[in-house]
């Protein structure tokens, strides 16, 4: 599906993500890495001290769609593949890779780069490259 270039809403949306990450750091002292926040409250080795704040942050994320619907009057545009097998494999790889590599787009890509972390800069370069190659293979069969 074709999508339009949305410079303004993408920039403002990105800035909101940044504002949220700064608030989380100054209040809870945590890096806003979503895979980290989610995985720390999953078994094995659940971090009990992070359970309540982690669940509240996730609840906030989940409330964003109903809030958006309430303000905007419509659902945001989403085009999700109907190939359930591919989506299941993709989910498995995203979850496994993010936790095994200690971070995802938010933790490494935004927060880590902002802290000039070498690990995050390398991780972001690696996942950008493999995601680009995956789409290249998927769409152009190369």
């Amino acid at each position: 599906m074709e999508t339009e270039f949305t410079p303004l809403s993408s920039l403002v949306g990105g800035m909101l993500i940044g504002i949220s990450a700064v608030i989380l750091l100054i209040t809870n002292g945590r890096i806003a890495g979503i895979s980290g926040i989610v995985s720390r409250i999953l078994p094995p080795s659940i971090h009990r001290s992070e359970l309540s704040q982690g669940l509240l942050f996730i609840a906030g994320l989940i409330l964003a769609i109903p809030t958006w619907y309430f303000i905007d009057g419509g659902m945001p545009v989403q085009f999700v593949s109907n190939n359930y097998l591919v989506l299941s494999i993709a989910g498995l790889l995203v979850g496994f890779g993010a936790v095994f590599g200690n971070g995802c787009t938010s933790g490494h890509g935004v927060c880590g780069i902002s802290r000039m972390s070498t690990r995050s800069i390398v991780a972001t370069s690696v996942f950008m490259t493999t995601s680009f190659l995956t789409v290249l293979f998927l769409r152009h069969g190369l």
């Binding site: 769609i65 993709a90 995203v94 890779g97 095994f100 590599g101 995802c104 493999t130 995601s131």
Partner: peptide, 27 residues
């Protein structure tokens, strides 16, 4: 771990178009 994890994450991200934050938000 960092390199292998990031590589696997990227393949899944490209395949599904979702990373963890947007996926949970869209549940």
């Amino acid at each position: 771990r960092l390199l292998l994890g990031a590589a696997i994450f990227g393949i899944g991200w490209g395949l599904g178009g979702f990373c963890p934050g947007p996926a949970i938000t869209s549940i």
